[in-house]
Each structure stands twice: as structure tokens, then as C-alpha cells.
């Protein structure tokens, strides 16, 4: 089943073109890696899928389960099952992680026509997932991401992904700033969420992550388009030869 269908997408910021005729098709159960040099538009693509204001879509469309995603508010997209793990998760002082998780989870459940979780059910769920990601109770009591290290912030993104049970997960450089142990924890958390109903788009600059999260497809992005698609071997090829060959191709 096709979850995400992007056709001839064009996106600009302040009248500058950033995404220029991008196509991408993602089916349930698949893991796609998007690789590309800095500035090629990977984060922009993830923001546009999630609905961040400030981008102008000048052409093309994005369908999610056949529905026009671009017409939806960001929270509607989340409720439909779109989840973006941010490259740079923000800090929210004064809102404890626990309160945030609960508010967000209940908002999504409500939009999906499900009731709120009871406090014990919620706590059980959070503690289970948090434990597997080495997220301490103290972190859950602190303001969202406040005083978290880079790795802790990334683990907090994966925690949310596990709680919200999205059908499309976009992971924007989930590996950046992680040491090898943290990378293992994060990757195993993500791998545990792979399922036939769920698709993932793993955005990364480096091949390293793809040793841990093995993709079905690899796309190379350069200057706002997908310039080459292939199987997981493409990532190895990139590791050997670098992005330079694609810079000119675009």
C-alpha cells in the first residue's frame, strides 16, 4: 500500500528555490534512506511533509494515503500518522517532558477517535519505552529537552515515535551528534518499530547509520532533487566515492 506519494515537488523560501522537482514514493513496510550533502534540501523536505510554516510550495503535490497532505494542519498530519524526528529538537522550558508526552499523546488519540489513556496505563507505557532507551525518570521530570545532551534529545525523539505509533516516520539526521553507544541504542529503538504497516524515511549524511538501520531503498538528494535511487548498495558506493559525482549531475 502506498503511504506517501510526492510528485514534482517545488518548494521555495523567500523566493529562493530549495526543492526543485522532487519525486518520492514510499509504501507501507519500507525503509527509505535519503542521503545527500549539506544544503541539498533534506531538512526542508522533512519540514514540508510535517507542515512547518514559512515554506512556499510552488508546484507538485504530496499525498498521504491518497489524501492531500499539504491541505492539512501540522497536528492533523500528526494525527494521521506522520511523525518527524527533528534534526534539532527544541527545548521547552516550563513544560515537563511527562506533561508534554501526555498532552501530545492524548491530543493525537482524541483526533484518532480514541479515548485518553488512564494515568497508570500512560505511566506504564512511558516507563517501558523510556527504560529501553536509557531515558531516566529525572529526564522525564525536566522541561522538554532542557539541559539534555545532543544524544538525549535524539533519544527523546525516538521515545515519542514509539509512544505515538505513527505510520510514517521521518528521521532527520537522528545519528548526528551520537557516539557509537548512543547510536546503537537509538538504532535498536528504531528497528524495534519497523513493521509491515509502518514506513520510515531515514535522512542521513553518513552511511554509518545505515549499518544499523538497513534500508530497502537509498535515494541520493542533491540541490533539491532525487538524483539517483537504488538499493542499499548505493549507500556503500556513496561511502566509497562521496557525493561529488552527484553535485555535477544535479
Amino acid at each position: 500500500m502506498t503511504l506517501l506519494e510526492i510528485q514534482d515537488l517545488n518548494v521555495g523560501v523567500d523566493s529562493r528555490e530549495i526543492i526543485r522537482g522532487l519525486d518520492l514514493m514510499v509504501n507501507a513496510g519500507e525503509v527509505h534512506a535519503i542521503m545527500g550533502p549539506n544544503g541539498s534540501g533534506k531538512s526542508t523536505l522533512s519540514h514540508v511533509i510535517a507542515g512547518k510554516p514559512g515554506y512556499e510550495v510552488t508546484g507538485g503535490h504530496i499525498l498521504f494515503r491518497g489524501e492531500d497532505l499539504l491541505e492539512m494542519e501540522p497536528n492533523e498530519r500528526a494525527a494521521k500518522g506522520v511523525f518527524l524526528a527533528f534534526q534539532y529538537p527544541v527545548e521547552i522550558p516550563g513544560v515537563t517532558t511527562m506533561n508534554f508526552l501526555r498532552t501530545a499523546l492524548n491530543a493525537q488519540r482524541k483526533a484518532r477517535g480514541r479515548g485518553e489513556l488512564s494515568t497508570p496505563e500512560f505511566l506504564k507505557k512511558v516507563r517501558e519505552v523510556a527504560g529501553s532507551l536509557n531515558i531516566t525518570r529525572d529526564m522525564l521530570k525536566r522541561g522538554v529537552n532542557v539541559g539534555f545532551s545532543g544524544g538525549e534529545k535524539k533519544r527523546n525523539e525516538v521515545l515519542q515515535m514509539a509512544l505515538f505509533e505513527p505510520s510514517l516516520c521521518i528521521l532527520d539526521e537522528i545519528d548526528s551528534g551520537l557516539d557509537i553507544d548512543a547510536l546503537r541504542i537509538v538504532a535498536s529503538g528504531i528497528n524495534g518499530l519497523r513493521s509491515p504497516e509502518r514506513a520510515m524515511i531515514v535522512i542521513t549524511h553518513y552511511q554509518r547509520l545505515l549499518h544499523y538501520i538497513v534500508p530497502d531503498y537509498v535515494h541520493v538528494m542533491s540541490k533539491g532533487r532525487v538524483v539517483k535511487s537504488g538499493s542499499k548498495e548505493l549507500a556503500l558506493e556513496l561511502e566509497a566515492c562521496g557525493y561529488a559525482q552527484f553535485e555535477t549531475a544535479a
Partner: peptide, 13 residues
């Protein structure tokens, strides 16, 4: 706005 968007992306209106 980045904080507002983060929360919206997590399901809040």
C-alpha cells in the same frame, strides 16, 4: 515559532 511548530507536529492545535 519553532516551539509552536514542534508542539503542533506532535499533535497539538
Amino acid at each position: 515559532n519553532n516551539l509552536v511548530f514542534y508542539l503542533r507536529a506532535r499533535g497539538l492545535s
